[in-house]
Design a protein around this nucleic acid. Sequence first.
DNA 1: CCTGATCATGAC
DNA 2: TCATGATCAGGA
Length: 803
Amino acid sequence: MKVARVIVDVPSMSIDRLFDYLIPEKYEDIVEKGMRVIVPFGPRKVMGFVVDMQNDSSIEKLKSIVEVMDMTPVLTDELLKLGTWLADTTLSFKISTLQVMLPQILKAKYNKELKLLVEGEEELSPVLKSLFVGRAVVSFSEIEERNISYHHIQKAIKDGYVEVQYVVKSKETKKKLTWVRPVNPLLLEEALVDIPKHAKKQRVIIEYFLEDNEPLPIKQLEGKLHTTRSTVQTLVQKGLLETYEQEIYRDPYENRNFEKTDPLPLTTEQAEVIEPIHETIQKENHDVFLLHGVTGSGKTEVYLQSIQKAIEKGQEAIVLVPEISLTPQMVHRFKGRFGSKVAVMHSGLSAGEKFDEWRKIQRQEVQVVVGARSAIFAPFRHLGIIIIDEEHETSYKQDDTPRYHARDVAIFRGEFHQCPVVLGSATPTLESFARGKKGVYKLLTLSKRVNNQNMPEVDIVDMREELHKGNRSMFSFPLQEKIQERIQKKEQIVLLLNRRGYSTFVMCRDCGSTIDCPHCDISLTYHRKQEKLKCHYCSYEIPMPKLCPHCESESIRYFGTGTQKVEESLQQTFPEARIIRMDVDTTRRKGAHERLLAQFKDKKADILLGTQMIAKGLDFDNVTLVGVLAADSMLHIPDFRSAEKTFQLLTQVSGRAGRHQLPGEVIVQTYTPDHYSVELASQYDYEAFFGHEMKVRKAFQYPPYYFLALITISHPNHPYVIQVTQRVAKKLNEMSNNQTKILGPTPSPITRIKNRYRYQCMVKYRNEPNLYTNMRKIVQEFEHEIQNKDLQINVDFQPNHMM
DNA sequence: CCTGATCATGAC
DNA sequence: TCATGATCAGGA
């Protein structure tokens, strides 16, 4: 007896374990660990992952696997292990951790159908007769659309006329190309005689294959010989040619040539830094390196040559870059060096393209993957190095379950494969840098720019003084002057507006009231394009009212500074300037991001105005001025990392100027010019910032001195949420040691979302080896209420934000 | 006594 | 998560 142990696709606490299924004889030699199967589960059928195989089971009556979905496993043994570990350390379901490792398209789709059991439709009720009309199966979605009441169907089921069947489908599609080839090349010569005189096109085709009988895609044949599909079809019918399908990859970069680049000579610093990495690859050791390199110090070349080393050893490499900086420039550098050995994974690809890139990895056709967060799960089997660029980026942590951090996954995989993990950044997170100093990570430093250029001069402008001088615009006099100067010199300008901390909310100037979402405790934001007010958290929206709903005054206005508004006033101040605006609105469409940047590179604009997304990785040789419009907009949001984030952003954006021959300049506008994050960023003094910020973190007991876990509890009933949160806090207190601090219950920053009240507890801990299991125990104690009473308990370890 | 609505339970 | 059977309130 062969038994498969299966994790089924049912995200529920009580189902979050293994289920045993009999492997039918016909599948005995086929089923392997890591494959997806379809299994009966209760009355329905669901997808599941085989994670183990056995010869017997403790369960008496086993059901059998219905179908095997894969020819080869989609998950390796390592990834299965990783899944279990992730489920333990993020408190998520095993099924979710396995699903998150695969391209979306492999996620099963479930369909419910009604099947006719009798011949003909005579015995059916009139309603059902009209439903089936000659068909044998009807999908439930159609039944719902037609509003047919369930008891017609129930009755028919009871009478044995119909039955419900469950279908599991894969959305997976492989793109195919149709090819043409001669059935037997030797027969073509004779066949030519039988082709009618007037059938010129048929002759052309035959003659073509006589000359060169290599198969050809049908599309190409049509183009080359100016023929059509029907001519080919006639020859197929005559038995001379045949068509067949071959699978192809959707290659998002297929029409682009990547000029081959060779390794660049290294600076002394680069050579020093690369040495220990190479050695670790060579010795097949695991180590975590923190590569701290100023912007423009040539980190990418260090990555490239480290990867080279791994490839030469026959191993593979994963490179993570933040989604936002996965620009064509970046892809170019990797494709240029490693050509077709590279797969690229990012959110701009269609589901089909992502699947194809993933398959290249799975089939070991590529050795390098460059991608955003989820590329960390690339199914490589011989990893030689893992690189995380811009290590400090918050997007490496997934915001919803499973709330994993790509850095942790990288270290897990690095240990498994005994290979180095390289974390690179000009502004590492305090957590990482502290580990670097302690020697937990090996600290590597690049302190000079490759071209030995100085970092651009940073000029801090105090906006309060501007106000005193009578300048009420959002562009300070020095900035205006410099912009004017660049436009004249035909040099380019990058302007950064930090939208966070600003939002376009609506307020009445008479009564001062704002317009809030009726389901969430947050004000609605104004969307100019559709003249609507929308809620960010639920789908609620209303047309922009003409009168204040409270006092019926006409003076309701929207406040805040959106990029559009800045663009307008920028245009007013510099009527001759050509401006490109980059924000969520202008880059939503596929390829828009890329197109705008290309325009700017081609000097079709003088000013690039944008949000965070322009702060990273861009490299334009004609940019000599960078302006930050509101450097402190992030400082005032209640987040213990706000100083760190401000420092990071200012440093990153300053690095955009003067990267080539022309020297650069940076202007930072702020209302808090003496805040240490602004001041130290302008001096490019990371070490000093680190020292200062560490003191702050110590004083307030924040990371890296303490770990955090945030528990958020939500339910439609307000008093009930408070009560549950209190109970949770009490249990936590009982279970943890006396160094650990439990804060709360407190209301979440947004106390209500989608009509659910939200309360939270914060755990600050230094050493709680059992926290994961304890936390799981606590959540399990509420299992009943979670399942039956619509209670939600969310646990986020090392949260990015407190919401 | 029937009907629809809500609840509790189990799924290899 | 979701189908099922049990239980309960309300209507005539």
